[in-house]
Simulated assay, not measured.
Amino acid sequence: MDRFIHAGQATPEARWLACEALRTAPAIHAAELVPAGHRAVVLAPHPDDEVLAVGGLIRQLARLQRTLCVLAVTDGEASHPGSSCWPAGRLAATRAREQGRALRVLGVPAPVQRLGFPDGGVAPRQQALAEALRRLLQPNDIVFTTWRLDGHPDHEATGAACADATARCGAQCVEVPVWGWHWSRPEDAPMPWPRARRLALDAQDLRAKQLALRAFRTQLRPDPSTGAAPILDAASRARAARPFELLFV
């Protein structure tokens, strides 16, 4: 199956919301996902992936006063190719600031730990990322990251590196689809539904997630220098507005 992301060809949100496997996925709660005494680690391939994937969960864990660490694999410097408005250095610095603002909205004041891998170049460095994670992770960590079949090379390599590192150090890896919703279709059943768990978001969680997403202005506005549309299109924003998050446990 083609897992590549094609602009303007997202599976309509209405089809996902009508999907029986999605509607009937067993419920799970933040306190179950990260029991007391465990650390939550959110591993984001790019700034904004942590909000898109588990923004509501982050807020819930912050309210539970769980120890929470966010790791940024890349700084997202390649999201605007050819842009005179957003050369790579400026874009990386701006996206890092956006990420910090978003996390503060969700109740996480601690700084993000930046791993410095190149945006768009994680796949050839997957083993190096796995080794870096092995040095950073602890056996009682619960690590949330992108799905190994998510459709974006950086997301897939990050998920695979996380699975490798957690298996070796005794931590737990929880995968979350971000772009997988875009390219896959309910009838094709590519997602590992037996592992799927549904985390409910109340109105306050959802509002905080939406406010956090608005921090990523670079991803929500068109680029006047190239004419490129916003990176986070209407389909991405619709998925981020769901009153739940789906995780592969």
Results as ranks from 00 to 15, higher is better:
A212Q: 06
V108N: 09
H80I: 06
P190G: 12
T74S: 03
R217E: 15
V174H: 04
R148N: 15
G89D: 14
A123K: 07
D75H: 12
V112I: 15
L129Y: 02
S83V: 07
A25P: 13
D164R: 15
S236D: 14
L133S: 04
R207P: 08
R23P: 11
R197N: 04
D49I: 04
G107M: 02
P109Q: 12
P177Q: 03
R148F: 14
W147A: 04
D49P: 11
G180I: 01
Q126F: 05
A18P: 10
V73M: 09
A25T: 13
D48K: 02
F144H: 03
A238L: 02
R66Y: 04
F244C: 06
P186A: 03
A92S: 05
S184V: 01
L71I: 06
T74E: 03
P47E: 09
A128R: 13
R97D: 14
L247W: 06
D141H: 10
E98P: 08
L213G: 00
A241Q: 11
R95N: 10
G82H: 07
T146C: 09
L64Y: 10
E32H: 09
F117Q: 00
A171V: 03
A14R: 12
P230E: 09
V178R: 00
Q9D: 15
T11A: 02
A235S: 09
P194M: 06
Q99D: 11
R195P: 05
C69P: 08
L115A: 00
L129D: 02
H155C: 08
R217Y: 14
D205C: 01
I231V: 15
S225N: 07
P47T: 02
R237Y: 05
F248Q: 01
F144M: 05
Q219V: 05
A92F: 06
V178F: 00
D188A: 15
R114E: 14
Q113C: 13
V178C: 01
A88Q: 13
L33M: 03
E131S: 14
R95T: 13
V70E: 04
A14Y: 12
Q127V: 14
R63L: 11
Q204L: 12
F4Y: 15
G8N: 02
D164L: 15
C85W: 10
V112N: 10
G82E: 08
Q9V: 14
P87H: 02
S84L: 09
A240V: 10
C85R: 07
Q172I: 07
P12N: 11
A96W: 12
H29R: 15
L213F: 00
L68M: 00
E187N: 08
P35F: 01
W193N: 09
A40P: 05
G89C: 12
F248C: 00
L201M: 06
V108A: 12
G180V: 00
P124L: 03
L64N: 11
Q204F: 11
D154H: 01
P194E: 03
E77T: 07
H152C: 00
S225V: 01
S184M: 02
K209T: 12
T158G: 03
A215S: 10
D164I: 15
A62H: 05
D223A: 02
F4H: 15
Q127T: 15
V112Y: 13
A167C: 06
W179T: 03
A165S: 02
A18G: 13
H80P: 02
A167M: 01
R237M: 10
A212I: 05
V176T: 06
A7T: 14
R135I: 08
V34Y: 01
A208H: 07
